[in-house]
Design a protein around this nucleic acid. Sequence first.
DNA 1: CCGTCATTTCAACAGCTATTGAAATAATCC
DNA 2: GGATTATTTCAATAGCTGTTGAAATGACGG
Lengths: 120, 120
Amino acid sequence: MKNDAAVAALAALAQQNRLDVFRLLVQAGPEGMPAGNVAEALDLAPNTLTFHFDRLREAGLVTVRREGRSMIYAARFEAMNDLLGFLTENCCRGAAEKCAPAVCKPVRAKKPATRKEFAS
Amino acid sequence: MKNDAAVAALAALAQQNRLDVFRLLVQAGPEGMPAGNVAEALDLAPNTLTFHFDRLREAGLVTVRREGRSMIYAARFEAMNDLLGFLTENCCRGAAEKCAPAVCKPVRAKKPATRKEFAS
DNA sequence: CCGTCATTTCAACAGCTATTGAAATAATCC
DNA sequence: GGATTATTTCAATAGCTGTTGAAATGACGG
C-alpha cells in the first residue's frame, strides 16, 4: 500500500459520521446496504451522506452499485486490511512480540500464515 | 475503545507527516527516538514537528519523556492495537472469514442495530 | 406521461488545520 | 556566567472540510 493511499484512507475515516458509516458497512458485510438504510440508521441528511460516501469511495474504502432505485454501498475489506497492515508494517523492526502480539506481523506477510502452530 | 478516541486517533494519523512520524516510531519500537532524529529522518522543521507530536500525543498515540536535552518520543502500541480492533469490530456480524481472514476478529457482538431488511 | 421515491449535485459559509518565522525555554558544556 | 544544542511557544496566514438548502437526476408504478 502506498503512503498516499494510506493517508487518504485514514483521512476518510477520521470523521465521526464517516467512521460510523464505514463501521456500519463493515458490520453489514460484503453485500453492503442501501444508502437510505444507512441514512436512517445514523440519522444523516441524504445529501450529507452522499458527500461522505464520496469521500469513502475516493479513498477506496467502499464500493457502490445500483439496485433499482437504491444505491448499495459496501465496505472494501481488502482496502481495510491493507491499511491495517500498513500501520503495523515492520513494527519494532521485526520484533513483533514487543509491540503488538495480536495484530503486528513481522515485516511483510501479505498472506495469513497457516495457523497450525496454535493447536496447543 | 470509544468512538471519539478512534476519530481522534485516525485524525492524528490522517496527515502525511504525522503518519510518517508515527510509522517511524512504530518501527523504532517501545524505546522510541529523540525528536531531533525524527526531524532529520523526515526532513521536518523542528517547530512543525512539535506541532505534529502534540497532535499524536493528544490522540494518545505517542508518549514523550525527557532525556538530557532531548525529548524521546515513542509509539503507544496499545493505542494502535485498540484502533485496529475498533475498525474490525464485529465485522460481517461475526462471519469474519468473509471479510478479513488475517486481522478481523469476531469479537463479542455489541448488539448490531436491528437492521431493517431492505425489500428484495 | 405523471407522481413519487431514492439519491445526487451545486453554491455558500463557518470552522478547522498545517506551515512559517521569530522568539522563548531548558539542559549541557566550557 | 555565557555559548551551544534541543525543542517548544506564539501569532499570522492560506487552504481545506463538513453541513445546509434548493434544485436536479434517475428509476419505478399506475
